[in-house]
Amino acid sequence: MSAARPSASAAALRRRRAATAGFHLGAGALAVLWLLPIALVLVTSLRSFDDIAAHGLGSWPRSFTLDNFRQAWVDGGQQRALINSLIVTIPCVLVTLALAAMAAFALSRYELPLRRSLLLLMLGGNLLPPQILLIPVSKLSELMGVYDTLPALIGVQIGFGVGFYVFVLHGFMRAIPTEIQQAAVIDGAGPWQIFLRIILPLTRPALAALSALSFTWIFNDLLWAITVLRSDTKMPITAALIGLQGQYVSMWNVIAAGSVIAAAPTVAVFLRFQRHFVAGLNLGAVK
């Protein structure tokens, strides 16, 4: 009996080690498969056109150049498009989260009439397929005289994003103990002081996570950009990338360089807010 128990435990330990090794091998293989296309785009963006034309897109690179980024940045209009994207994205993120935070604070901390109906209405608006709203949004922007302007795109992004952010922030703010707010009221704090000095600091992980997600969604959006914009000089980076593909049809190195330029801001934002993003997801999972 005493000899059988150590052998059984040793066998269980070997099985656990084999399972752990198999998991790491499988996860490593999936990571390599996921990173291969990204590595191919990065390498292609640095290769010369003559190298790709002579040896093929999948061949081992024989020459490197940064002129592809200059062509995409200057000749392809990526510089102007990136500025347009930042002009749209930064105000949208700030205004949307500010409005959503104020609305979530009111709906989660005070007994307002029909507050549940308002939350369901905001959530239901985000469940509608955006394709059925393309023509109404385009016609409405024309009637308002803002068609083919960046403020029109900013208004659309804010209008379609605020409902989802209110729903998410409502869950975070509702989980904050009411005793904290009651203690602040006893000390003479008003609603704005409670919101700015107590609630907002406690919801910082959620705001950081939503900031990263919001920046990524708005910056990478293409559908609403081609719906309310027409002029090439006002297109954001995603629409300009499509134009770059039409301008440099067979020059895959320039197209790859434009793709790297378009992806760089969102990658930088995610890396900057990665710690807060993971903390926000973990906090939401616990709640």
Rank of each mutant, 00 (worst) to 15 (best):
L241S: 07
A257L: 11
R275F: 11
R80F: 08
H55Y: 07
N68K: 01
G171Q: 10
F160N: 00
Q79M: 12
A106Y: 09
M173P: 03
I135T: 15
R5K: 11
T44R: 01
L30V: 15
W34D: 05
I198R: 04
A175K: 13
A225W: 02
T20N: 06
V278P: 00
T20A: 12
H24E: 11
L118N: 05
D232R: 08
D187I: 12
L229P: 01
P129C: 05
A264T: 15
H276N: 12
V88L: 09
F23P: 00
G161Q: 13
N68L: 07
S138Y: 15
I158A: 02
A268C: 11
S138I: 11
H170T: 14
I199Q: 02
V286C: 06
S259G: 15
G190A: 06
I176G: 05
A104L: 14
D75K: 11
A4Y: 01
E111W: 09
I180D: 09
A183H: 07
V156E: 05
Q131F: 12
S48T: 15
P151M: 09
S45W: 07
Q79P: 00
N220Y: 05
P129V: 07
R197P: 09
T65K: 07
N84E: 10
L33E: 04
G76T: 02
L281E: 02
D148I: 11
G76V: 07
L46R: 02
I176Q: 08
F105R: 01
P177M: 09
R275S: 15
Q79N: 12
M144K: 06
P113V: 05
R272F: 15
L42W: 03
T44Q: 03
I199C: 00
F195L: 15
G145I: 09
T233V: 12
Q181G: 12
F64T: 09
L86P: 03
W73D: 00
R275P: 07
A106I: 09
A175N: 14
S9P: 00
V249I: 15
Q245W: 02
S231H: 08
F160W: 13
P129N: 04
V249H: 05
L207E: 07
L213R: 03
G190E: 05
G125I: 13
L86M: 13
P236G: 03
A81F: 06
L153M: 14
L123T: 08
L97C: 01
A31V: 14
L118F: 15
L196C: 09
S9I: 13
L169K: 00
G284I: 01
G188E: 12
S7H: 09
A27N: 05
P191L: 08
G56A: 02
G188F: 10
